[in-house]
């Protein structure tokens, strides 16, 4: 319903990305903004998996890990340009998602959650234990993308924060555009149909298993690219990017904003990225406050922030 106006949504997003820096009190906020966009990108991928196709994954940080460490490792060991490494990482994630997705997506509900969780834990353990390669828990340096220098030579001087803000913003807009295209396309409709009723989807000829797999692979690519961008902008990466907490964080952002709504999901990503920054005043109670916020939202706005608020505004209540 709130997806029909594709270009309106993209316009709102672009406007926000362009206008927000006016209100930044310091250059530091470009960093925060870029982090929001990166998180939002993985979350948009999860909207496709959870919101469109109705499948759950508690292991998507595993794909973020693949994307991040592709960017860290491939330039060092194979001399690939970091930009190519992003693409190779995405391809690798897609391949792995395709392979594990086939057996895993036969499972439903809790079983699917546990199976994907297992994948995430596995990835995280591999990255942590292969010290020789990944530096283990200490992490490793990531080569620079080099694009900022190219732009500087062309006369466009950007600070690191500004550059990554613009870069991640751009990739997010592209990601949102693709997701909105998918939503209203035959494939997206088939995904949403099987979400509504798998038996009925089959009666109209929808190959349920293959559509679920497509959603899983696409969302893995989103997570992978987000992981790559995170690694590149920080210039450093640790296996935490593939960790269980990161997977949970992604799903939480998706659910908080509203699984069926792309802009909602971005709002969820923004809130959960900003909240810890604001909550530093609560020091050790930060996690507690975060948890309480989540519980309250789920009790009072069960469809997620944006869809619930939109429904209230339309006067239908929740």
């Amino acid at each position: 319903m709130n997806m029909q106006s594709k270009w309106t949504q993209i316009a709102i997003l672009v406007a926000l990305i362009v206008i927000l820096p006016v209100f930044f009190p310091s250059g530091y906020y470009y960093r925060v903004g870029a982090l929001i966009f990166v998180n939002a990108l993985s979350v948009v991928g999860l909207v496709i998996l959870i919101g469109f196709a109705g499948q759950i994954s508690l292991g998507h940080a595993g794909f973020a890990g693949i994307g991040a460490f592709s960017c860290a490792l491939l330039p060092v060991h194979f001399g690939l340009h970091p930009a190519i490494a992003v693409l190779v990482g995405a391809l690798l994630s897609a391949l792995i998602a395709g392979m594990i997705g086939r057996p895993i997506l036969r499972l439903q509900g809790y079983y699917l959650a546990v199976a994907t969780l297992g994948f995430g834990v596995l990835m995280s353990m591999v990255l942590t234990n292969e010290r020789e390669l990944t530096g283990g828990p200490d992490g490793m340096r990531v080569a620079d993308l080099g694009l900022r220098e190219v732009l500087r030579d062309m006369g466009l001087k950007l600070s690191g924060g500004e550059f990554w803000y613009a870069m991640c913003g751009l990739v997010l807009v592209i990601g949102v555009w693709v997701a909105l295209n998918l939503y209203n396309s035959p494939t997206g409709r088939a995904m949403r149909a099987l979400h509504g009723s798998e038996v009925a989807a089959r009666t109209v000829g929808i190959d349920v298993a293959s559509k679920k797999l497509q959603a899983f692979v696409i969302s893995a690519i989103y997570a992978s690219v987000a992981g790559s961008l995170l690694a590149l902008q920080n210039g450093f990466i640790t296996p935490d990017v593939a960790g269980f907490m990161h997977s949970i964080e992604m799903v939480t952002m998706t659910v908080l904003g509203g699984v069926g709504s792309i802009l909602g999901a971005i709002l969820g990503a923004a809130i959960l990225t900003l909240l810890p920054q604001v909550l530093t005043v609560f020091a050790e109670y930060e996690q507690l406050v975060l948890g309480a916020v989540m519980i309250l939202v789920m009790i009072f706005l069960p469809r997620g922030l944006l869809p619930s608020i939109a429904a209230k505004l339309r006067g239908r209540g929740e």
Binding site: M1, R189, A190, A193, H195, A200, V204, G205, I206
Partner: peptide, 24 residues
């Protein structure tokens, strides 16, 4: 077995899935 969260039109379009599906 209706696709509850889709519009009436989308439900009907879904019936045309075999005709409308193509390269991802």
């Amino acid at each position: 077995q209706i696709f509850q969260e889709m519009t009436v039109l989308e439900n009907a379009i879904a019936g045309y899935h075999m005709q409308e599906s193509g390269p991802l």
